[in-house]
């Protein structure tokens, strides 16, 4: 038998979730069964409990879980790509809050063996997002500058590490002072505190970068800060919105957008990833796995919980990012 964390209602995790026992699944043809090592609790998992629109009653009971990593426990007929014991990334959103998960083998990716599973716990979301942001929009040769906001967020930090690894230089925009040393230790080149005046802000960025041409801006927040990033871009630059974490629409001035020929686009991670062939996807995932295993892409873990401690785990994961400082994960 195995443990399964089921969502049976909405609201407080103590009542909305229930831990049940179920038989270990058997690998059907073309499938593998993955024994989970870690599964991250993402914001979407937290919202799925809170918001009935996301998880209507007729979809319950359901098993949550956005991403994680595990090892192959059983291999179904016809699967030749994976062997028992091998570490894999199971598909996203495949009900990962359970000890054993049956997965279509073709949708799984090999994961590196030579690291702790925790290091791989957010590769498929934040790692992949950061990777695609730096790959898919502007050709960035070594030495090129990028500017991004929410630089102190989990994804912001991953972007810093990836950019440094690629030989890129980063302007890191943060809300308040005090992150210089921390972000520079991760590989940040310049840390700038956001200010209201776009001109003043751009002047400070120019000074800090020695008037560098910045071809791409990555905005996680929206609102006026997105416009300030745009204001810092060189002519013909691209602003990629990728988070929309703030309530406000990105505000981009005509004098930047039209006069300076900027492009504003939004990244959809799945869409960007699915533009790639199966081989390319496997290559991307292998690259990300290596970066995570080698510590270039660092994951901040706020706390680890056992599946049976789900109430405490969800309470922790529901705290604001600043308080939590990292990802809450289940360790199986």
């Amino acid at each position: 038998m195995m443990q399964v964390l089921q969502q049976i209602g909405h609201g407080d995790a103590r009542t909305a979730l229930a831990l049940i026992e179920a038989p270990v699944p058997i690998a059907a043809p073309g499938e593998i069964v993955v024994r989970m090592e870690v599964a991250a609790i993402h914001q979407s998992d937290v919202l799925n409990l809170a918001d009935e629109k996301r998880t209507p009653h007729h979809t319950l009971p359901r098993i949550g879980g956005t991403e994680g990593v595990g090892r192959v426990h059983a291999v179904g007929d016809g699967v030749i790509t994976f062997t028992v014991g091998q570490r894999v990334f199971p598909p996203k959103y495949s009900g990962l809050f359970r000890t054993y998960v049956p997965c279509v083998a073709a949708n799984c990716y090999a994961a590196p063996d030579d690291c702790d599973a925790e290091a791989l716990s957010i590769v498929q979301t934040m790692g992949l997002t950061a990777y695609l942001l730096l790959e898919d929009y502007v050709k960035l040769p070594p030495g090129a500058w990028i500017i991004h906001d929410a630089a102190n967020s989990s994804i912001g930090r991953i972007i810093i590490g990836l950019a440094r690894h690629r030989g890129l230089r980063t302007v890191n925009v943060v809300r308040r002072a005090g992150f210089d040393n921390e972000l520079k230790a991760l590989g940040a080149d310049v840390v700038v505190v956001d200010t209201d005046g776009a001109d003043e802000f751009a002047a400070r960025v120019k000074q800090a970068t020695g008037n560098a041409d910045i071809a791409i801006g990555l905005d996680m927040i929206g609102g006026a800060v997105a416009g300030r990033l745009a204001h810092c871009l060189a002519d013909q630059g691209t602003l990629v919105l990728y988070g929309g974490s703030g309530p406000d629409a990105a505000q981009v001035a005509f004098t930047d957008l039209a006069r300076r020929n900027l492009t504003v686009t939004g990244m959809g991670m799945s869409r960007a990833f699915n533009r790639r062939s199966a081989n390319e996807k496997a290559h991307v995932m292998a690259t990300l796995g290596e970066l995570a295993a080698s510590g270039i892409m660092k994951t901040n873990i706020a706390a680890r919980y056992r599946l049976s401690d789900y109430a405490a785990a969800f309470a922790h994961a529901g705290q604001p990012n600043a308080q939590r400082n990292g990802k809450v994960i289940f360790r199986f």
């Binding site: 990728y242 629409a249 990105a250 020929n261 504003v264 939004g266 959809g268």
Partner: peptide, 29 residues
């Protein structure tokens, strides 16, 4: 394609508009 701002305001577009439908916003001169 934005080519003016007779509202006097910057162009406002939310991530969700761009992301869900893969919309691009460009400026024209």
């Amino acid at each position: 394609v934005n080519y003016g701002f007779i509202s006097g305001k910057p162009s406002e577009i939310h991530f969700n508009e761009l992301f869900w439908k893969d919309i691009k916003l460009v400026g024209m001169s």
